[in-house]
């Protein structure tokens, strides 16, 4: 289903959900939950957004049933730890590649995905200052290295 332009800012979180459907359904579930909560704040009144959000809610309810025996979905504190660990694993992989001078598309994507998953952590409450800083750094690094590679420059 096409994403209404008003909800454009959740498109990357929805894409991350899709990419993790098989690899890690818990990550996919929380990415969609974040997209749902954010989407409702952005626009839940226009017919096109309501239609989109109702579909997304249907999908979330189905996933919740399918994952009903998974503690990461049934217990918020376990889910929080799962998403935070996954985000930091992505961050550390990208950071290690960066510090070793290995610049490539995969590490750019890891930095960016880490920043998106740190957004997703907001479904559990306010982000810690450390996670706010990690998110800012990961997003900046992803953009910076992407631009360097595009312009044929070596990142510093």
């Amino acid at each position: 289903m096409a994403l209404p332009p008003q909800l454009k800012s959740i498109q990357h979180h929805l894409r991350t959900a899709q990419e993790h459907e098989k690899r890690d359904p818990v990550v996919a579930y929380y990415c969609r939950l974040y997209a749902m909560q954010t989407g409702m704040k952005l626009d839940s009144k226009s017919p096109e957004c309501r239609k989109f959000l109702v579909k997304l809610m249907d999908q979330l309810e189905t996933m919740k049933k399918e994952l009903s025996d998974n503690e990461s979905v049934t217990q918020e504190v376990v889910g929080n730890a799962h998403i935070e660990n996954y985000a930091l694993k992505m961050f550390l992989y990208a950071d290690n590649e960066d510090r070793s001078g290995r610049f490539h598309k995969n590490m750019i994507k890891s930095f960016y995905t880490a920043s998106l998953l740190l957004d997703v952590l907001c479904v559990f409450g306010e982000l810690s200052e450390e996670n706010v800083q990690h998110r800012k750094y990961a997003r900046w690094k992803a953009t910076y290295i992407h631009n360097c590679l595009k312009n044929g420059e070596t990142p510093l």
């Binding site: 939950l33 409702m40 959000l53 809610m57 979330l60 309810e61 919740k64 979905v73 049934t74 889910g79």
Partner: peptide, 27 residues
């Protein structure tokens, strides 16, 4: 007509909020 449209939109929005709360309640 406008107010009917608004009420429908508001009811559907409430329904979504209710479903979201239910989804989160079970966590």
């Amino acid at each position: 007509m406008g107010s009917v449209g608004t009420s429908v939109a508001s009811a559907e929005q409430d329904e979504l909020s209710h479903r979201l709360a239910k989804l989160r309640d079970q966590m």
